[in-house]
């Protein structure tokens, strides 16, 4: 890595890290100065103290949630792209099915989760399906709009050479839709984390396999404010990691040819 690229990387990373650090310092100083009751508010140092004391428990919970999130996200990536491909192949299929995919978007997850517990039992399957349900819709719509935006002459080029439908799919539709698919994945990654954590409130396992959602519920009931903050922070780190993974994949797939991934 050249000095120039290092500087570019620093320019990307330092501002958000600096902002986070400044926030933590102000927060800490304010808690020490104002000394609010500890069931209302706590300092970053107290969160750090409790979190490190129970690091094993938090690490296990993060891991359990991460597994459910990855399953949910992977499922919605595969099912979402496949559904969009089918819907894009005929206007009738789209008209018949698309309205129902909107339902996925509008029915509140907490209302579906109890049903999932009945069908799948509480545990990782039900939690993963919660992540899947909330993250599916953006994958479908983005993939669909990506496929629909492929320029007509490119499609006609494939007609002209008598391309088979699978060739149109693999050599035109999917590669052409990749920028949109990746945009869909980015949104889905964040939603899968939210879906899994909220899913755990209702459908999480209470025993050894508890995830961050359960940590949140238990900490809230027992008034352990630092643990609550720690669980929320870990859940958002999970989301950041997954979105980062999607960004890396998008970069690898597109940096050679797409404007959005061109180094500036």
């Amino acid at each position: 890595m050249t000095a120039r690229r290092l500087r570019a990387l620093a320019a990307r990373l330092l501002p958000p890290l600096g902002a986070a650090l400044a926030l933590l310092v102000v927060w800490e100083l304010w808690v020490r100065w104002a000394d609010p009751p500890r069931f209302l508010f706590c300092a970053p140092s107290e969160i750090w103290r409790d979190a490190t004391a129970r690091a094993g428990e938090l690490a296990a919970a993060t891991w359990n949630t991460a597994v459910a999130v990855l399953w949910g996200f992977a499922l919605s990536a595969v099912v979402g792209v496949a559904t969009a491909v089918v819907l894009s192949s005929s206007r009738w299929a789209e008209r018949a099915v698309y309205p129902f995919t909107v339902i996925l978007q509008t029915v509140p997850l907490v209302a579906i989760a109890p049903m999932l517990v009945i069908w799948l039992h509480a545990g990782i399957q039900a939690v993963a399906v919660c992540g899947f349900i909330v993250s599916l819709f953006p994958v479908i719509t983005n993939t669909l709009s990506g496929i629909r935006s492929i320029p007509q002459p490119q499609v006609e080029l494939f007609w002209l050479y008598g391309a088979r439908p699978w060739a149109v799919l693999w050599k035109l539709k999917l590669p052409g839709a990749i920028p949109s698919i990746m945009a869909g994945f980015r949104i889905a990654a964040g939603l899968a984390v939210i879906g899994a954590v909220v899913g755990e409130f209702v459908a999480g396992e209470l025993g050894a396999k508890r995830g961050l959602g359960i940590v949140v519920v238990v900490a809230a009931k027992q008034g352990e404010l630092p643990m609550l903050f720690a669980a929320v922070a870990l859940a958002s780190l999970l989301g950041i990691a997954l979105v980062g993974g999607v960004n890396a994949a998008a970069y690898l797939l597109m940096y050679r040819w797409h404007v959005s991934e061109r180094p500036d």
Binding site: P151, P153, Q154, L157, P175, G176, M254
Partner: peptide, 11 residues
């Protein structure tokens, strides 16, 4: 067929 624009596949 040669179109008005090149329409090469960008990827």
């Amino acid at each position: 067929f040669v179109f008005q624009e090149a329409h090469l596949l960008p990827w």
